[in-house]
Design a protein around this nucleic acid. Structure first.
Ligand code: MN
Ligand code: MN
Ligand code: ZN
Ligand code: ZN
Lengths: 140, 140
DNA sequence: TCCTTATTGAAAATGATTTTCAATAAGGAA
DNA sequence: TTCCTTATTGAAAATCATTTTCAATAAGGA
């Protein structure tokens, strides 16, 4: 389902700031903080308010169009998320993030933990960190 | 390796605030924020400064005695971590967290992603969320 | 017990996020 | 197109979280 459509279903509007945030995230390829999204909007002379960036990210999160990326250091970057369940793999050097899906492979594992602990597991965060192909070359 | 020992190796001291933070986390069973650790220390009349809580958590993180827990909502809870690699499973109702280890089961999966993406993966975050046995009963 | 120095904590500084509220602009209706 | 309703914006202030500073303190080895 498209952003436009999702918004419409809820009586919400497709506004300039919302377009901008999506456009910036779309061009980014690595997780961005609210601050850095705002900065890019200034560079692009789109001049949207920082407050709107926060509000838009919250909205996009609810709509599952954006996902929060955690890190041991700087938490809370946001990346555009394609529909469906999946996770992110982030390069520690350049920040480049790629998506991967792997619920199937994990579900077996999760079932096992469920049995062992007695918990009923209904959600998880899985994030991988490493070095992307490009940065591996540069390392030589 | 014990806290006492780890500190000693680095020429650091086992102080009252450090004891307190560990004691509070030890009694907690669910991830605590710096603020809530501080509050408990006030309740316990141990009267350590909030600043020391932050500093102690940072130190304990470096020593791998404490782990940060992320959530989609309130990030940055801390739990005591037993030595070795493992993850946490958190109850969404009462917050109770349990540890589980599963590197073996995951490594296969990670190798696969590594091949698919070309990234060299060297770290990951895995956190599970669900309902603990106790809270499942109360649900009736 | 004494001395060195790692550590503490109050206060201030900084930074991130949220709230408020009057002005604006989406977008449906006419 | 024009008009109208109301969701949305953004500047500023308020709030909350985290870090820095620095003089006073207390670990803990000698
Ligand atoms: Mn986080
Ligand atoms: Mn693991
Ligand atoms: Zn890279
Ligand atoms: Zn529970």
């Amino acid at each position: 389902m498209e952003l436009q459509e999702k918004l419409h279903n809820k009586g919400l509007r497709l506004t300039q700031p919302r377009r901008e945030v999506v456009a910036i995230l779309n061009a980014a390829a690595s997780p961005l903080t609210p601050q850095s999204i705002y900065q890019r909007s200034v560079e692009r002379k789109s001049d949207i308010g920082l407050v709107s960036v926060y509000r838009t990210l919250e909205l996009l999160s609810e709509l599952n169009l954006v996902r929060r990326v955690h890190g041991r250091d700087g938490c809370h970057g946001y990346v555009l998320a394609s529909p469906g369940h999946h996770h992110h793999l982030v390069c520690r050097k350049c920040g480049k993030a790629v998506e991967f899906s792997g619920s199937a492979d994990l579900s077996e594992f999760i079932t096992k933990i469920q049995k062992e602990t007695g918990y009923k597991i209904n959600e998880h965060i899985l994030q991988l960190y490493g070095i992307c192909p490009k940065c591996q070359e540069e390392r030589q």
